[in-house]
Amino acid sequence: MTASSWRHLLVWLHVVSSTAWMSGAAALAILLGLSRTDPAQAAAAVGMARHLDVYLLAVAANASTTTGLVLAWTTSWGLLHHWWVAVKAAITSVQLVVGIALLSPVLDALAAGGTPAPAQQVAGAAVMASAVAFQAWVSVAKPWSRTPVARRERARGRTRLPRAGTSLVAAGVLAPIGDVALTAALGFPAPLLEVVVLVVVGVARRRALRTAVAPVPAAPAPAAPPRR
């Protein structure tokens, strides 16, 4: 397969995983809300919510993050050269931190005790779904201008970032698929391959940019003919 074909698959996987992330967060908010409005269904609702979080929400969030970063690093868009890409990356980072550090541990405790979800847990899931929906709009509209990083690059004579090779793009497609299998086998989110791929692609991108901006030594001026 060509790099272009792998890139199309990467975009497709990013769209699918982002949609699954948004849908999963919306379903999570509905289940947690049900646990509050119907005490008789609280234990079942929070149990299903936890199952949804482990096997859909976390997997989709990891895949969406990985494919989004690989797309930014392997194409001419870059990660910090356009405000719309940088804003998406910032929102995604906040969502992952909040989801891993705050929402998921509370959800585990709720499922273990079979107790209704607190209002802030329901609100957190709803905000997550809304944030992914906003990112979808940003991806389509591509608002705002270039960042100061891009303007500095343009001043140095580089108006377009280099694209990565086929192997890095393919890795961005295959890693999330492999981690889905790992999660199913282990019973908990395991983005091991995705972390490795992000490190490899990030390092490769940094090296490519350094090579691209390396100054080219000027050719020596021809020696003046001797005077007679």
Rank of each mutant, 00 (worst) to 15 (best):
G178F: 11
A40R: 13
A184T: 06
P189V: 02
V138W: 00
L28Q: 12
A25G: 02
V200T: 15
A44H: 09
H8F: 01
V203H: 14
P162S: 14
P225V: 06
L209V: 15
A223M: 13
V203G: 13
A175C: 10
V180S: 08
A136C: 14
E194L: 07
T183P: 03
P105H: 04
V98M: 09
A49L: 12
L110M: 13
V94M: 11
Q120E: 05
L96E: 06
W21A: 09
S35K: 10
A224S: 04
T67I: 00
W83R: 15
T2F: 08
P162R: 09
S5A: 14
G202M: 09
P39N: 01
L182F: 09
G165H: 06
A49F: 11
P191F: 00
T19L: 14
P105T: 05
G178S: 12
A112P: 11
T19V: 15
G172R: 02
L13V: 08
L57W: 02
A123W: 07
T166C: 01
S4H: 11
A181Y: 10
G124Y: 05
A136G: 10
M128C: 05
R158H: 02
V203R: 10
A224N: 15
L168T: 05
W6I: 04
P220A: 06
V85K: 11
A61S: 05
A214H: 05
L174Y: 00
A224V: 14
A184I: 13
W73C: 00
A185E: 14
Q135T: 04
V140T: 13
T66V: 07
S104R: 14
A155H: 07
V173R: 03
G33P: 13
